[in-house]
Amino acid sequence: MRPTALSALVAVTATAASVFAHEGFHAEIAALDARLEVAPDDVVTLVERAALHRRAGHEMEAYVDAENAVLVAPDDPRALLERGIALHALGAAASAEEDIDVYLTTGGTDVEALVVKARLARERGDDVVARSTLSDAIARAARPDLVIERGLIDESRGALDDAAAGYEEGLELLGGAHVVRKRLVRVAAARGDFDRAEQLIVEAMTRASFDAEWLLERADVRAARGRMREALEDREAALAEIDASLATRPTDLRHLLRARALLALGRIDEARRTAEGVVARSPGLVEAHTLLRTMKSSSDRDRWSLEP
């Protein structure tokens, strides 16, 4: 059964479905609006617009279009998929799972169906099914976000060997994806495999034109293995490179990296001021808020101290 509250909103929301479109999708959605004015029951166009609304982050508009598509064509697999994805985003887990299961059992191959299935399993506490389903998704379409999501399941249950193996697989499949490599470095260090962690960093630095981020990663690894002098040298080198780069590329991401370097060097007040400046200029930058929260924790002050 569809959630009554959602069904009641269909008629109310349908006319507003394109009003709140994300600016980046506006032209594409407007073109589909025009097509639907001529043929309002065109299932292909309804599904296409539902997918665009989903990618723009407008779950209710996506649900409305997908629900209308299902009303016209109850067995259309793409309509069921989009409705299932939208229902999951809206918190209607049971109905979402029903749609996703129908889509998959009738031969659907879209990787997003597997992603939603995995997340539904995780939400009900079934990490085994969640991990297995993500592995199936990665086999169909290797993506950094899926490799990280699977690895975080392993990390959350303390299975660092499994996490490392998954990240190694992802690194090979994706040709050295930056975010996967960084996660693998941290898991390798947590497992005590410091040589592998440093090897991964050196490999990254041979390809990078800007080393500061990797210098900070290597400093953390070296500090973890007790090589504090080398860690200090890496952090100072990272800060020097960041400061030099800011003269020609004064982005908030670089300023945020500078705050990280200052924090790692124990210069907490400077780090806080730098991070606060980033938040003021770019309030949507989640990493800046996270770093500020870290600095406000007295326990984290101790963590970032350079004292042995």
Rank of each mutant, 00 (worst) to 15 (best):
M1P: 04
P3M: 10
P3W: 10
T4I: 14
L6C: 09
L6F: 06
A8D: 13
L9E: 07
V12Q: 14
T13M: 15
T13K: 14
T15Q: 09
F20D: 13
F20G: 10
A21D: 00
H22K: 14
G24P: 00
H26W: 12
L32F: 06
D33F: 08
A34H: 02
A39Y: 11
P40Q: 05
V43L: 05
V44W: 08
T45A: 02
T45V: 08
V47L: 03
H53F: 03
H58P: 04
H58Q: 14
A62H: 04
Y63F: 11
V64Y: 00
A66L: 08
N68W: 09
A69G: 02
V70P: 03
P77F: 11
L81R: 01
E82K: 02
R83A: 02
G84D: 02
A89P: 11
A93N: 15
S95E: 10
Y103H: 07
T106G: 04
T109K: 12
D110Q: 09
E112C: 13
L114T: 05
K117I: 02
A118E: 01
A118G: 02
R119I: 02
L120W: 02
L120V: 07
A121K: 04
R122K: 10
G125Y: 01
D127A: 13
T133R: 01
S135C: 07
S135E: 13
A137D: 08
I138T: 08
R143H: 12
R143W: 11
R143N: 09
D145N: 10
L146T: 06
I148K: 09
D154W: 13
R157C: 15
A159G: 14
A159R: 12
L160S: 10
D161E: 13
D161R: 06
D162Q: 08
A163K: 06
E169S: 14
E169C: 14
E172Q: 14
L174R: 01
G175W: 01
G175C: 04
A177I: 03
A177D: 11
V179I: 09
R181W: 07
K182T: 10
V185Q: 06
V185G: 11
R186W: 13
A188D: 11
A188R: 08
A189Q: 08
D195H: 09
Q199F: 12
L200S: 09
L200N: 05
E203T: 14
M205A: 01
R207T: 11
A208G: 00
A208F: 03
D211E: 12
A212F: 03
A212L: 00
A212S: 03
A219T: 12
A219F: 03
A219R: 06
V221M: 03
V221S: 03
M228H: 15
R229F: 14
E233N: 12
E236Y: 05
A240H: 10
I242A: 06
I242E: 13
D243Y: 05
L246G: 10
L246Y: 04
A247G: 13
P250H: 08
T251C: 11
T251W: 15
T251D: 13
L253Y: 14
R254I: 04
H255Q: 13
H255I: 05
L256Q: 02
A259K: 03
A264T: 05
A264N: 08
L265Y: 00
L265I: 00
I268L: 14
E270W: 05
A275N: 03
R281S: 11
A288P: 00
T294E: 14
S297C: 06
S297Y: 01
D300Q: 12
R301I: 07
D302T: 15
S305M: 11
P308D: 15
